[in-house]
Every structure is written in structure tokens, then in C-alpha cells.
Design a binder for these strands. Structure first.
Length: 660
RNA sequence: GGAGUCUUAGCUCAAUUGGUUAGAGCGCCGCCCUGUCACGGCGGAGGUUGCGGGUUCGAGCCCCGUAGACUCCGCCA
């Protein structure tokens, strides 16, 4: 371990300068818990022996661990006017320097804040001379006297702005190279920030984000502990999941040719803990999914994972409402209104075109199927004849914000990106209905349309004509984009929570030609829909599943699970998993269910997304200390890397990747 | 796998219709400066315009390819 020499320049009030070197004892941190408790503003300092010419280590090893010598007596955000006159020692980074040739000001930064340090040549010439050489990000330790700032020089922008510390000692603990990007101004490229993440995290904004994250997990643990939940860890090395996302595989050296998988979620384990009779489980669980990344998706992410026995849907929802209340109270200081409104999946899709509707604004989808039931407009006619629907939204006041050219671009966008057949629109400008389709409408249709949509001067209508689901989804996306255009959600501090409930249990997948679980295969069908499993009307079965949504972001989702062996087996069958495959892949679970599994259910919240929203960040990368980029690469460590062939041999695997 | 946007000094960005030696602010280096707080003043260094090719008398700018970053679709709760 390289030991850095530490240059100490110290000067006592008697102006007896001495220069010497010291090194810390790496095995004995100077600030252990016991000594931290003894920090105070009036601790005594001791003179360290020193020579002048030869750099020498003079301080006995145990000196550093003595409470009489510490790196600092307090933090850079703690000193106020009432501490005036006290002698303090601060340690931190040079945030900025203002060198007037004579007097020098340094803003000293640590995790908690800034303190202005003053070097006065007329009082401490040697120390001030050394201070001229200070540069940004140097790590220093200073000792000095807390003084009220001169009249009129207080800085209201700083919490410590009423005081400054007049330095009489300066120790340069470690010089810094010039940082590759400024830490105080506009944000640099994200890849540069990720390359030097340890510097990026020095910025107070990032430090704040990580503090908020800590408070969220702390509040979560406190709250769930109070509610009787046990934090239980589950394996990271587990089995591949047959359904859902791609797994990260881990080869087993001891069992050549066999693989573990990293868990996509602790789903089966948390259910087995219920069978085990632990009754109330939670975990701040790391989850892994090998899928393409997004601003709100990382290959590894964290869930607040909860499962309980003998609970109903509404009990679980109240529990989570209480948790979110606590989290928002302790991080943002706001009291969110509970209980959250409930909306069925069918309602959410029909009115907002989304299973995670953003309720901060209206612009609801309206059905025009009735208006156009006799239409001669060919496009609408064929949709209606095919059992489809006509729906529309009214972007109030959008006419002045969007040109005809832009409207064409929007149409292009829904076609290429959303796979829609088109996007009809009417722009109400200067008393005219500008639209390629209005000429096909009868006067009666126009009148009814205007009435239902409350269509007025300055508005823009968007139409969706398709089967109910795709028509709603496309308009749901247009609704969000229109809200962005109209700046409906900018600067909004609104927090619109809701539960979306009664999700469909199953959805038919045309590509794979079989039914797939919408939530996951352990989700419980609603009792009143059980008969549909017999009749084969699988698409109409509703699940006891619920998502909690905030401002259009899915914070988490859960369900009441199947706890009966036979029902679970039957559902696997519908999903196309035959009895043999069930035994191989889910035998342990089915067997467990046959030993008196209690009714149970749970939920998982996306911690990263939750913290992102609490921090007002645009990406979960802003609330993860060391995230990976778009391609799953950690730019700082270059992970993932190629490995020695020998390592692959040990694991009995080989790579088929083509070398560049 | 696909689409879009972007890539110019250490950082953030300019550069008119394709036209002289590619500029500015910040940062950096040097000198000056005793109450600043994004201190100030003077001076200086710093560029293969991501990379490769093409069109042109002439390319940072136009075209083709390629690499990388970000956003989105597919994928993924």
C-alpha cells in the first residue's frame, strides 16, 4: 500500500514556523466511532514535534488515533455565529479560491457543505504563503479561529455565511490534478462523468441524491420493521427463469456445464418464505435483467420487495401507501394524501390510453364510435365494420404550438414508432377546421363531434381509429406528447398517486401462439372469474394484481398469489407448461404448495425510480452511485472485460464471440 | 435488431450561402492585486473539427461509410 507523504505547514500564534512530514497509520483510522462521539468545538490541540530541513516522520503511530489529534473537529456545514472565538480544525477539498495577492479566501468543502477559510498574511505569513499554491480539489486540513464575518461581507447563500475561519495552520493532505471537468458549473458529457464518477459524485447534487436514497432505504427499513416485517436475504446465485426477461448466467465450476442465473426478482423465494411461515418478509433486493437499457432501466437495479401471508389486496395497498407516506415525509417533508385513488386497468386504458396514467393533467380519451356509427368516411367505416373504435383527445390550445408540418411529423412518428396506421387530426385555427378528413364528415357528425370533444378555437383534435387496445395506446402516447408540447407538467410539484387494479391475468401472444402471464405466472385470478378458466375465455380473466403509479411512472406492482397446488398447476397448463416441464422447473414450488401453503401476496417497488422521482432526476443513473451506460458498460472500470482463456477452461465454457 | 439526435480547445458552446489564420466563456499557466464569495486586471498556452473515404478550385459545414454517446421502438414489469 503506497503511503503518501503528507506535508504539514503549521504555524502557532507565536509565529514559530515549523515544517515536517508525517504519514498516517492506515491501520488505525484517526476518527473511530468513539472519538467521533468526542468531537467538540473546543478540543485542545497539541504541538507536534517537528524539524525544518529533513522530511521526517516524527509523530508516533498511536498519535493519530489519540483524541488529542484528529483530522477535524467538525464539519464544513456546522459552524455558526455562536461558535465565534472557538478554535476548530476542518478537513476537506478546496472548492474555490479567491486569491487577492494579500488576503486569500478558500471555500473548503466536505460532504456536508462549505466554509470560508481566510488566510491573512499580516497574521500568519508562512501559512498564507503556502495557501497561494492551493488549487481546486486539493485536500487540506486547516486549523483556525471561528470569526464573525466583517460587517457587510456575510454571504446569505451559504449556511455558514455569517462566519469564516481565520487559518493559523494549513496541512496539505493531498494535492489534486486539474479535474477533467468542472465540478461546479454546467454538467459535462455523461460519459465523461461516468468515466470519473468519483469526481462527479463530489458534486453536491449527486451527493444529495445518494443521501436521499439512503433516507428512502432507512425509512423503508424502519417502517416495515415497525409493521412486523423481517428483512431476509435470498440467494443471488439462483435458477434461470423460464418466462420473462433474459437471465444473466453464471457458470458453475464445481458442476461443469451447469449454470446459475442471477435473480430477476426474488419471486419464488419470497413465496417460499411464506410457505415457511415467516409471514412478513421484505428485502431491499438487487435484481438483474439482461435486456436492452433505457433511461429508467439498468441491468442491475434495486427493488423494495415485500411479501406477506394472510393479507388481502387492500391491506397490502394500505401498507404500501403508509410506506410511501413515510418515505415522502422523511425525504421531502410532504404529506401525501392517502389512500390513493383506485382505477381499473380497463378504465385507465379507456380514459388515458395507458396502464400507468399521468393524472397531473386531463386531456382524456373520448369515444366517438357512436358519432360515426353511420359514417361514409372509408377509413373509419372499415375500422368500425371490423369491430374497432373511434376515439379522440382534445389538445386544448395546441393550434398555435403546432404547425401543419409538425402535425405531419407526428403522424410519421405514430406510424414508424408506434406501428399505428395513421394519426388523423383537426386543427381549429382562425375559425377554420384544418384537416384532411373533415370533408368526409356530415354536418351532424361535425356537430356531435364538437360537442363531445368540447372543440373550440385554438384546439387540436387527434383521432385514433383501430381496435380498442391499439387505438387507446396510440392516443395515450399522443396525449403525453401533447402535454409536453403544451408544457402542462413543467414546474409541477403535483404528486398524483393511484392504484391501477384488475389487470388481465393473461394476454395472447400472436408471435409465440400461446397465452402469457401479464404479471407473472403465480398471480391469482379473481375468484369471480375462475369459471372463465374452464370456459377457455382466458383473455377476460382478471387478476388480483395492482400497480402503484406516480405521475405516469410505474413505481411498482404486485399481486395476491396462487397458494393452491392444483390451481397453480392448471395455470401453468394454460401457459403451455406441461406436467413434465412443471416438475422440472417448478417442482419445488408445487411440492411446497402441497404442504399447507398459506394465502399470501406481495409487491415490489422500484427503488431507483422512486428515488429518481424524489430527486427530480431524469434518469435512474443520477441516483445510482456507479451505474452502467446504455450498452451496459461501466466506463470507469471498463466492465465487462474479456477474460483469460484459462478462466473459461476452468468453467468448462468457451466463447464464440468473433474477435475484432 | 430498428429509428432519431449529437460528436469542434480540458469543459460548455459559436462559426452567416461551402470561402481569409476555426472563435467565445469557463478552466489552465505566468504576472499584478489585502475583504472576496462565479473576486478582479493584464498577458500566454491550448485544435488531426470523432475516424475513414468522396464531391469541390476550396469542406467544421454537402454525400457515403464507420465508431461512440444519448433518447425512443422492439425487448423488458
Amino acid at each position: 500500500m503506497p503511503l503518501r507523504l503528507l506535508k504539514i505547514i503549521r504555524e502557532q500564534h507565536a509565529k514559530r514556523p515549523s515544517f515536517f512530514f508525517k504519514k498516517p497509520n492506515p491501520r488505525q483510522p484517526p476518527c473511530n466511532a468513539k472519538h467521533r462521539a468526542e468531537w467538540n468545538f473546543s478540543h485542545r490541540r497539541v504541538n507536534l514535534p517537528g524539524g525544518t530541513a529533513t522530511p521526517r516522520w516524527k509523530c508516533p503511530n498511536n498519535r493519530l488515533s489519540s483524541p488529542l489529534f484528529m483530522y477535524r473537529s467538525t464539519s464544513c456545514n456546522s459552524l455558526r455565529k455562536e461558535h465565534s472565538g472557538q478554535s476548530v480544525t476542518l478537513a476537506g477539498w478546496v472548492n474555490s479560491r479567491r486569491d487577492h495577492g494579500g488576503v486569500i479566501f478558500i471555500d473548503l468543502r466536505d460532504r456536508d457543505g462549505l466554509t470560508q477559510v481566510v488566510f491573512r498574511p499580516e497574521e500568519h505569513p508562512q501559512v498564507s504563503e503556502a495557501a497561494h499554491g492551493l488549487r481546486g480539489e486539493d485536500v487540506i486540513q486547516i486549523t483556525g479561529k471561528v470569526s464573525p464575518r466583517l460587517n457587510g461581507t456575510e454571504n446569505s447563500k451559504l449556511a455558514t455565511g455569517d462566519i469564516e475561519v481565520i487559518a493559523c495552520e494549513l496541512t496539505i493532505l493531498n494535492k489534486s490534478d486539474v479535474p477533467p471537468f468542472p465540478l461546479d458549473s454546467k454538467l459535462a458529457n455523461e460519459d465523461l462523468r461516468l468515466n470519473y464518477r468519483y469526481l462527479d459524485l463530489r458534486r453536491s447534487e449527486m451527493a444529495q441524491n445518494l443521501k436521499t436514497r439512503h433516507r428512502v432505504t432507512k425509512a423503508t427499513r424502519d417502517y416495515l420493521d415497525e409493521k412486523g416485517f423481517l428483512e431476509i436475504e435470498t440467494p443471488i446465485l439462483s435458477n434461470p427463469t423460464p418466462e420473462g426477461a433474459r437471465d444473466f448466467l453464471v457458470p458453475s465450476r464445481l458442476n461443469p456445464g451447469s449454470f446459475y442465473a442471477l435473480p430477476q426478482a426474488p419471486q419464488q423465494y419470497k413465496q417460499l418464505l411464506q410457505v415457511a411461515g415467516l409471514e412478513k418478509y421484505f428485502q431491499i433486493a438487487r435484481c438483474f435483467r439482461d435486456e436492452d437499457l433505457r433511461a429508467d432501466r439498468q441491468p442491475e437495479f434495486t427493488q423494495i420487495d415485500v411479501e406477506a401471508s394472510f393479507v388481502t389486496e387492500s391491506e397490502l395497498q394500505s401498507l404500501i401507501e403508509g410506506l410511501l407516506f413515510r418515505v415522502f415525509k422523511e425525504t421531502r417533508g410532504v404529506e401525501i394524501p392517502t389512500p390513493f385513488p383506485r382505477m381499473t386497468y380497463a378504465d385507465a386504458m379507456d380514459r388515458f390510453g395507458s396502464d400507468k396514467p399521468d393524472l397531473r393533467f386531463g386531456m382524456e380519451l373520448k369515444s366517438l364510435t357512436e358519432v360515426f356509427k353511420d359514417t361514409q368516411f372509408k377509413v373509419f367505416r372499415s375500422v368500425l365494420d371490423g369491430g374497432g373504435v373511434i376515439k379522440a383527445i382534445n389538445a386544448k390550445g395546441a393550434a398555435e404550438h403546432i404547425s401543419k408540418e409538425q402535425l405531419k411529423k407526428w403522424e410519421e412518428w405514430v406510424k414508424t414508432e408506434l406501428g399505428a396506421k395513421g394519426l388523423a387530426y383537426i386543427r381549429f385555427k382562425d375559425g377554420e377546421w384544418e384537416s384532411p378528413i373533415v370533408k368526409f364528415f356530415t354536418d351532424a357528425e361535425k356537430k356531435a363531434l364538437a360537442e363531445i370533444m368540447e372543440f373550440h378555437e385554438g384546439d387540436v383534435l387527434f383521432f385514433g381509429a383501430d381496435q380498442w387496445q391499439p387505438a387507446s395506446e396510440v392516443l395515450g402516447r399522443v396525449r403525453l406528447r401533447a402535454a409536453e408540447l403544451l408544457k402542462l407538467i413543467e414546474d409541477s410539484s403535483a404528486l398524483k398517486f393511484l392504484w391501477v387494479v384488475d389487470f388481465p391475468l393473461l394476454q395472447f401472444s400472436p408471435e409465440d401462439n400461446h397465452w402469457a402471464a401479464v404479471h407473472h405466472p403465480f398471480t391469482r385470478p379473481r375468484t369471480e372469474d375462475l369459471h372463465l378458466m374452464e370456459s377457455g375465455d382466458y383473455g377476460k380473466i382478471r387478476a388480483v394484481a395492482y400497480d402503484v403509479v406516480l405521475n405516469g411512472v410505474e413505481l411498482g406492482g404486485g399481486s395476491i398469489r396462487i397458494h393452491e397446488r392444483d390451481l397453480q398447476s392448471k395455470l401453468f397448463g394454460i401457459l403451455g407448461v406441461g406436467p413434465e416441464e412443471q416438475q422440472i422447473k417448478f417442482g419445488h414450488l408445487l411440492k411446497a404448495f402441497s404442504f399447507g401453503a398459506p394465502p399470501h401476496g406481495g409487491i415490489a417497488l422500484g427503488l431507483d425510480r422512486l428515488v429518481m422521482l424524489l430527486c427530480g432526476a431524469e434518469s435512474i443513473r443520477e441516483v445510482i452511485a456507479f451505474p452502467k451506460n446504455n450498452r451496459g458498460v461501466d466506463l470507469m472500470t471498463q466492465s465487462p472485460v474479456e477474460v483469460e482463456p484459462r478462466l473459461l477452461r476452468d468453467l468448462a465454457i468457451s466463447s464464440t464471440a468473433k474477435k475484432a
